[in-house]
Nucleic acid binder design. Structure first.
Length: 275
DNA sequence: AAACTGGCCTGGACGC
DNA sequence: TGCGTCCAGGCCAGTT
């Protein structure tokens, strides 16, 4: 479940290791992970290229090559980039190997095979990358912008915040934490939010994402960064995965409910459904 | 246009 | 012990 802070941490750990490296060979163990182009073209376009930059947009990782192509990966649930010495044993879930000319390797693994990789010369061809909503930590994501985004919406808050076309980068963990901090029940609809609640939510989203990055991400199940290091934000979580445990604010037991087929953790006292 | 539903995928937890 | 069932939750396609 890498979300914005985890993906940012992966990019940060990848960057100093792979920029200026030359790709000498590419081995694809599980073809399913390569969304486009077809396998032969994928390899041909990669071999001989030098990596010039590594960036993040939403939960997408964008690796720039000197032939002006982009290697774009979305880790989805269990994806993992690992930067290793060539000699290191290949893991059970390592599915794409990028071998560099200096005998180091970048590996892309994925326990659940949800991970998708694209090699494109136009970012619009990489999944929904160019349809994403604003970056919540950017300057452009102002309170005024957030108010304008919310104004036409009437869906429930948890699915809305998970919608990457609405805001980029949030997943289940950081949505639940944001809604708790702002005192908003995950089933509330967007049209019932007061101006004060929208203001709190805007701040809370930025707060939890910044905290997540500071802690190098949340490691609940599988997540580690590109050098294999786990994050520590799981120790700071207020509601996520704390069903039946006491709320740190009021002592009430945290509950779990289903919203849009997904779990949502909340404090029934701090996040009432009825006004 | 926005909202919602089901499907993809597999390891691990649980019940019998 | 082992089998079946459910859950985790990223996104996407299809439908309303």
């Amino acid at each position: 479940m890498p979300e914005l802070p985890e993906v940012q941490t992966v990019v940060d750990t990848l960057k100093p290791n792979i920029i200026d490296k030359k790709i000498e060979a590419v081995e694809v163990i599980e073809e399913k992970l390569v969304e486009k182009p077809r396998l032969e073209e994928f390899k041909d376009l990669l071999v001989g290229q030098i990596i010039t930059n590594v960036k993040r947009r939403g939960k997408y990782i964008i690796i720039e090559l000197d032939n002006s192509y982009y290697l774009v990966s979305h880790l989805r649930m269990t994806g993992r980039f690992s930067y290793v010495d060539d000699g290191q044993e290949i893991g059970d879930y390592d599915y794409i190997l990028f071998k560099f000319s200096d005998n180091e390797e970048l590996r892309l693994g994925s326990k659940r095979k949800f991970t998708r990789t694209y090699l494109v010369d136009d970012l619009a061809d990489a999944g929904s990358l160019t349809d994403l909503g604003p970056e919540p930590l950017s300057e452009e994501f102002t309170l005024d912008m957030f108010k304008e985004l919310i104004a036409p919406r009437r869906g429930r808050m948890k699915p809305l915040l998970l919608n990457q076309k609405f805001i980029a980068g949030l997943g289940s963990i950081y949505v639940d934490e944001s809604l708790f901090i702002s005192g908003i029940h995950p089933m509330r609809t967007a049209d019932t939010l007061t101006e004060e609640e929208i203001t709190k939510l805007h701040g809370a989203i930025r707060q939890v994402l910044a905290e997540g990055i500071e802690h190098r991400g949340t490691t609940k199940w599988d997540y580690v960064d590109a050098s294999g290091q786990a994050g520590s934000y799981q120790d700071e979580l207020r509601v996520y995965d704390r069903e039946e445990e006491e709320c740190f604010e009021c002592g009430t037991k945290i509950q779990r409910t289903k919203v849009g087929g997904r779990s949502a953790y909340f404090c029934p006292q701090c996040q009432p459904l009825e006004e």
